[in-house]
Amino acid sequence: MNHLPQAWGRPRDDVYGPYDASYLQSRLPQTHTQSPIVTGTSVLAVKFKDGVVIAADNLASYGSLARFTDVKRLRPFNSKSIVGIGGDVSDMQYLDRLLNSLDVTENYSSTGHSLNAKNLHTYLSKVMYKRRSDINPLWNQMLVAGLDGNDEPFLSSVDLLGTTFSSPTLATGFGAHLAQPLLRKVADDESKVADITRERAVEAVKECMKVLFYRDARSLDRYSIAVVTKEGGLELKEDEQLEGQSWAFAETIRGYGRTQEA
């Protein structure tokens, strides 16, 4: 006779064979994020001779549904750094709070020093790598833009695995496929950065935002754009409209259910 409570009312092992004890578990194994839920798409950025320009659209998608259309995905940190975040929006909100508390504690001492974009990128890369090592990643890819310790333009990326890389132009998400090749025409090498004006960089980013809106089904024509320079500090515009759209090319597309010539 088995007096253990978990054996009560169950078939006897000696008669019916061993009972599958996995049915006795009161809870499921602990799981972490397997995929993002509400997502932001691409973030683009280009370095130019005096600073960096960064842009992201204002959409948060729920699967293929354009769920939130006024989402600010460029999160300013201080007057010399800003983070553009793609991927899961709730993880972005967590990161934003984390950076908020970092900024509060950094300002406890009044030494006059503040974290620059390079410091911020290092910090974020450690956070992301820690989380992926815990097998509980923050499902984002971020671009950190701003000025480094010598007030030189700084641009670098960190993703959900904690991987970091840098380039004169960067794009996350769909933009890595569609915009990056276009941006490389502007600057394919660090040595080109000195020749790029602010106007050229802004124009290239805006053009790429337009291309992304044409071809990325999870994108929006309202976007945020920020420029960080030594002189002007951080200039952020959060409700811009894509200008000069032309959908004429759509007529030439074949496929997607369209079978005949127009």
């Binding site: 939130f68 909100q93 934003d96």
Partner: peptide, 17 residues
Amino acid sequence: GGWDSAGALGVDGQVGS
């Protein structure tokens, strides 16, 4: 001493309006 924000202050981490 301090200043309580006079405007409608967003919640930390808020993304939309």
